[in-house]
């Protein structure tokens, strides 16, 4: 039986600027459902670009990005937005929370934008908050949290919609060892319990060890 690929990159190339700087060329990658893949490589090697292409925030110059069979490199607007919000939970490198809102309101936002009914939203937010152990501080304003605490909230928000694929860009980069432990145990349990497909760009060897496969991204010499 052929493997069940949820995500595939076929001959994807990306370059920037004039004169063109090639970030990568003819990349072929395939992710099976439930697989945990880590990407490692030096700063500037294109890991973030790769994650942005997979999630549709950036378009490749050539090639196909197949998400459950749909080439998201060829679609735009509402269709792309729908696929992205229903398929991916994204933890970007720079935290993108709304500091004026509470922890619970930030986690609720993706559900709100997907028009999930209020009772269901409340239930799902509370579930995620309890799972990561911050249910009691749900009404704290995000602007008052530490960098590590915000990272936890970002991870929680990426999972609240129960997406099949989770993309994380250096989730422990700015965290102290204690916060890193919390993130790792969270990833571990969620990965094991819910069988998500995960693609994580990381320098942290402990996260890389959790992965079933490691992709080494090399920096191109111009």
């Amino acid at each position: 039986m052929p493997p069940n690929y949820i995500l595939r990159l076929e001959n994807v190339s990306k370059s920037y600027g004039m004169p063109q700087h090639r970030v990568f060329e003819s990349v072929n990658l395939a992710f099976q459902e439930g697989e945990f893949v880590a990407a490692q490589g030096p700063i500037g090697s294109g890991k973030t670009t790769l994650l942005n292409i997979i999630s549709g925030f950036q378009k490749p110059n050539t090639g196909r990005v197949l998400v459950k069979g749909t080439d998201i490199a060829r679609i735009n607007g509402q269709e792309l937005l729908n696929i992205r919000t229903r398929t991916f939970g994204i933890v970007p490198q720079t935290q993108n929370l709304i500091p004026e809102l509470t922890i619970a309101q930030n986690i609720e936002l993706p559900l709100l934008l997907q028009k999930v009914p209020k009772a269901e939203r409340e239930k799902r937010v509370q579930e995620v908050l309890d799972r990561i152990g911050i249910g009691k501080v749900r009404d704290r304003i995000v602007g008052t949290l530490s960098v590590g605490e915000r990272e936890i909230v970002t991870i929680a928000r990426s999972m609240v919609t129960d997406p099949p694929i989770i993309l994380m860009d250096e989730p422990t980069e700015a965290l102290d060892p204690m916060m890193t432990d919390i993130v790792i145990s969270f990833l571990k349990s969620d990965h094991l319990l819910k069988k998500k497909t995960m693609f994580v760009s990381t320098h942290d060897e402990r996260i890389a060890r959790l992965a079933g496969r490691i992709i080494h991204v090399k920096k191109r010499i111009p």
Partner: peptide, 15 residues
């Protein structure tokens, strides 16, 4: 920045 966050989370321009 907050408008950008909402867009990244799936808020359309129209919404």
């Amino acid at each position: 920045k907050n408008i950008q966050v909402l867009k990244e989370l799936g808020a359309s321009h129209g919404l």
